[in-house]
Computed example of a mutant assay.
Amino acid sequence: MNRLVLSAQLVERGAVRYTPAGLPALDLSLKHESQVSEDGQPRKVSMEIRAVAIGAITRQLLPLAIGSSGTFAGFLTAGRNGRGLSFHVTEVELLT
């Protein structure tokens, strides 16, 4: 199974672009910070991940202000040109 659910903050959003199939797409940068337990020890986690939203989900993400927080869900795939990873966002639940 390839499913990622991440509590994160929107730190960057590109302009709407369109895929060759004509679907709207948004490039995003998401920041996550938390504390987890690893082998019984607390560990601080902080990371930024590149993400993309394609299709109808872009309508929910376009009005989102930079700095907004939420739970982003989707899947991981190889990045453009096979470099790194890309998080494809398919669902979002905003924190109020």
Score class of each variant (00 low, 15 high):
Met1Glu: 07
Met1Gln: 08
Asn2Glu: 06
Arg3Ile: 02
Arg3Lys: 07
Leu4His: 04
Val5Phe: 11
Ala8Asp: 00
Leu10Trp: 10
Leu10Ser: 05
Val11Ala: 10
Arg13Ile: 13
Ala15Leu: 06
Ala15Phe: 03
Ala15Lys: 09
Val16Cys: 05
Val16Asn: 02
Arg17Ile: 14
Arg17Val: 12
Tyr18Asp: 06
Tyr18Gly: 04
Thr19Ser: 07
Pro20Ile: 14
Leu23Met: 09
Pro24Ile: 00
Pro24Phe: 02
Ala25Met: 10
Leu26Thr: 15
Asp27Phe: 01
Ser29Tyr: 08
Lys31Arg: 12
His32Ser: 09
His32Pro: 08
Ser34Pro: 06
Gln35Met: 14
Val36Met: 04
Val36Pro: 09
Glu38Arg: 12
Glu38Gln: 10
Asp39Cys: 06
Asp39Leu: 11
Gln41Val: 11
Pro42Tyr: 14
Pro42Asn: 06
Arg43Met: 13
Arg43Gly: 14
Arg43Asp: 11
Lys44Tyr: 15
Lys44Ser: 13
Lys44His: 15
Val45Phe: 05
Ser46Lys: 11
Glu48Lys: 04
Glu48Gly: 10
Ile49Gly: 11
Ala51Cys: 02
Val52Thr: 08
Ala53Arg: 02
Gly55Tyr: 03
Gly55Ser: 06
Ile57Trp: 15
Ile57Lys: 14
Arg59Met: 08
Gln60Trp: 09
Gln60Asp: 12
Leu61Thr: 01
Leu61Tyr: 08
Leu62Ser: 00
Pro63Asp: 01
Ala65Asn: 05
Ile66Arg: 05
Gly67Tyr: 13
Gly67Gln: 12
Gly67Thr: 10
Gly67Trp: 11
Ser68Gln: 02
Gly70Met: 04
Thr71Ser: 13
Thr71Ile: 13
Gly74Cys: 05
Gly74Thr: 05
Leu76Pro: 00
Thr77Pro: 11
Gly79Asp: 10
Gly79Thr: 15
Arg80Ala: 07
Gly82Trp: 08
Gly82Lys: 03
Arg83Ser: 13
Leu85Tyr: 06
Phe87Gln: 12
Phe87Ser: 12
His88Asn: 04
His88Gln: 04
Thr90Gln: 00
Thr90Asn: 02
Thr90Phe: 01
Glu91Gly: 04
Val92Tyr: 00
Val92Leu: 03
Val92Lys: 03
Val92Arg: 03
Leu94Asn: 04
Leu95Cys: 12
Thr96Ala: 15
Thr96Arg: 15
